[in-house]
Deep mutational scan, measured.
Amino acid sequence: MTYRVRIENADGEVVTIEISADELREKGLTLEELLPPNARIVEVEEVEP
Rank of each mutant, 00 (worst) to 15 (best):
residue 28 G to K: 08
residue 39 A to V: 14
residue 33 E to I: 05
residue 2 T to Y: 15
residue 7 I to T: 03
residue 30 T to P: 06
residue 35 L to T: 03
residue 41 I to V: 09
residue 16 T to M: 10
residue 29 L to F: 08
residue 38 N to W: 10
residue 9 N to P: 02
residue 6 R to H: 12
residue 27 K to A: 09
residue 47 V to I: 14
residue 18 E to G: 02
residue 7 I to V: 09
residue 38 N to K: 05
residue 34 L to I: 11
residue 26 E to F: 13
residue 24 L to S: 01
residue 9 N to E: 05
residue 13 E to H: 11
residue 45 E to F: 12
residue 22 D to T: 12
residue 24 L to E: 00
residue 26 E to T: 12
residue 2 T to E: 03
residue 37 P to T: 06
residue 2 T to D: 04
residue 46 E to I: 15
residue 48 E to N: 14
residue 6 R to P: 00
residue 36 P to E: 07
residue 34 L to Y: 14
residue 27 K to F: 08
residue 7 I to D: 00
residue 49 P to G: 13
residue 46 E to N: 06
residue 21 A to K: 08
residue 1 M to N: 06
residue 15 V to H: 10
residue 7 I to A: 03
residue 2 T to S: 12
residue 26 E to V: 12
residue 11 D to M: 11
residue 21 A to Y: 09
residue 2 T to I: 15
residue 36 P to T: 04
residue 34 L to T: 04
residue 34 L to A: 12
residue 10 A to I: 10
residue 5 V to F: 05
residue 20 S to E: 05
residue 16 T to Y: 10
residue 19 I to F: 09
residue 12 G to E: 02
residue 29 L to W: 08
residue 21 A to S: 10
residue 15 V to D: 05
residue 21 A to Q: 09
residue 5 V to Q: 00
residue 14 V to C: 07
residue 13 E to W: 09
residue 34 L to D: 01
residue 17 I to F: 14
residue 32 E to S: 09
residue 37 P to N: 06
residue 23 E to C: 13
residue 41 I to C: 04
residue 46 E to L: 15
residue 3 Y to G: 00
residue 19 I to K: 00
residue 42 V to Y: 04
residue 42 V to G: 01
residue 24 L to R: 01
residue 25 R to H: 10
residue 41 I to D: 01
residue 33 E to T: 06
residue 16 T to W: 13
residue 33 E to A: 11
residue 43 E to T: 12
residue 19 I to S: 00
residue 39 A to G: 07
residue 47 V to C: 07
residue 33 E to C: 06
residue 37 P to D: 08
residue 23 E to Q: 07
residue 9 N to R: 14
residue 40 R to P: 01
residue 13 E to G: 09
residue 29 L to S: 05
residue 25 R to K: 10
residue 47 V to K: 04
residue 8 E to C: 12
residue 21 A to L: 08
residue 20 S to R: 10
residue 42 V to R: 03
residue 36 P to Q: 04
residue 35 L to H: 01
residue 28 G to D: 05
residue 36 P to W: 06
residue 20 S to L: 07
residue 7 I to R: 00
residue 21 A to T: 06
residue 30 T to E: 05
residue 21 A to M: 09
residue 48 E to C: 08
residue 8 E to A: 09
residue 28 G to V: 03
residue 13 E to V: 13
residue 9 N to T: 15
residue 12 G to P: 00
residue 20 S to A: 09
residue 26 E to Q: 13
residue 43 E to Y: 14
